[in-house]
């Protein structure tokens, strides 16, 4: 275990593994093309819980618990839980912590929080701190609608660029214990922390446009710091740029003479059947990248369908208040490089 600073924003690790990953999703996510990759699919958005907020909390807890169980380690061996969500005061993360009773580091980076947790967790372990860190994130469609948009039953028309907040949670158990050293498994190679990028987008119904420049900035700096290019990755997955955001990211690269099209995909675009499931631009939310990575991408790495993936979770850092006060939407993207050993 060691951590090396590769550049102004990138850190590389040795011997940091993902011991297990788990993803939990709502009914709509279960019906999507990645449904089979989820460990658990809820029969309804509420699943008998009293409110959508309570439901989101249990979605997160279930993913965390499944990841710990799949790794076959006791909860007591988790030295730190790093987790985030979208609700005010990180309600889901903190109330889940009331249940699991492990040291908790609550993080906020909007929908970019999963890679922030994964990268920070790996860094903490590699620095010789905790041995096992549980990195997780969750979002709930209905709870997010309530907080950021309108009441559920209020009728209104979504624009073609509007995103659909995913009801989903994902959790990865990251470890540096010597017991897992050696061949096999999936390693967390490096993290590039993003900076806040704001190119003047103001429409909260078009977060792809707001976040694409942040993703571009982080990916470029990741390549700069590591001396790599897109050919070194089987696939780059952005978090929730959606159909339109990925096109914009591709266009930004094209402008600089880089051809990213083939190796670029997006968790939000992959999560749903865009044409059939009426999700417009695709999925979004903290649980989107968390669940698509912990379910779909991690499984493909384990099966050796993929060797190396760059996961670039993207977050729009606005609040309903800043939007109403006429501010533009600042965005951030954190990238984590993951590799099959």
């Amino acid at each position: 275990m060691a951590v090396t600073r590769l550049g102004p924003s990138t850190y590389q690790f040795e011997n940091i593994r993902i011991l297990a990953a788990a993803a939990v999703g709502g009914p709509k996510e279960g019906e999507g093309p990645l449904g089979a990759y989820f460990d658990s699919i809820w029969p309804s958005e509420l699943k008998d819980h009293a409110s959508f907020e309570v439901a989101e909390r249990h979605l997160l807890l279930e993913a965390q618990d499944l990841a710990v169980k799949k790794a076959a380690v006791p909860w007591e061996s988790i030295d730190m839980v790093m987790s985030g969500d979208l609700l005010d005061q990180l309600a889901s993360t903190n109330f889940a912590g009331r249940e699991h009773q492990r040291p908790l580091v609550g993080l906020f980076a909007a929908c970019a929080v999963f890679t922030e947790a994964l990268g920070l967790g790996a860094m903490a372990i590699a620095s010789g701190g905790p041995r096992n860190v549980l990195a997780a994130a969750a979002s709930h469609h209905m709870a997010a609608e309530r907080q950021f948009r309108f009441p559920i039953e209020l009728g209104y028309q979504r624009t073609p660029t509007a995103a659909w907040t995913a009801t989903a949670a994902g959790a990865c158990l990251v470890s540096g214990s010597d017991a897992v050293a050696g061949e096999g498994g999936v390693s967390v190679e490096s993290v590039t922390f993003g900076r806040v990028v704001d190119w003047g987008s103001k429409d909260p119904n078009d977060m792809g446009t707001a976040m694409a420049p942040a993703a571009y900035d982080t990916i470029c700096r990741h390549f700069e710091d590591t001396g790599r290019s897109i050919e070194d990755y089987d696939q780059i997955y952005t978090g929730d740029l959606g159909v339109f955001g990925v096109r914009l990211l591709s266009a930004l690269a094209q402008k600089d003479g880089k051809h990213w099209d083939e190796r670029l995909d997006d968790c939000g675009r992959a999560l749903y059947a865009i044409d059939k499931q009426d999700v417009h631009n695709g999925g979004s939310g903290a649980g989107c990248s968390a669940s698509v990575f912990s379910g779909f991408i991690y499984n493909r790495l384990v099966k050796k369908d993929l060797q190396r993936v760059l996961l670039v979770a993207t977050g729009a850092l606005f609040s309903p208040t800043t939007y109403q006060q006429g501010e533009s939407i600042p965005s951030i993207a954190h990238a984590v490089s993951v590799r099959r050993l």
């Binding site: 624009t159 073609p160 660029t161 990028v197 704001d198 190119w199 003047g200 987008s201 078009d206 446009t209 420049p213 339109f244 096109r247 914009l248 266009a251 930004l252």
Partner: peptide
Amino acid sequence: SQAKQGSQKMQEYQDMASQMRPRK
């Protein structure tokens, strides 16, 4: 501050986005 660095770049980007944006 990035606003000072690239207001022209930002404007170009917003123009590109509004050209590519799917229409209602």
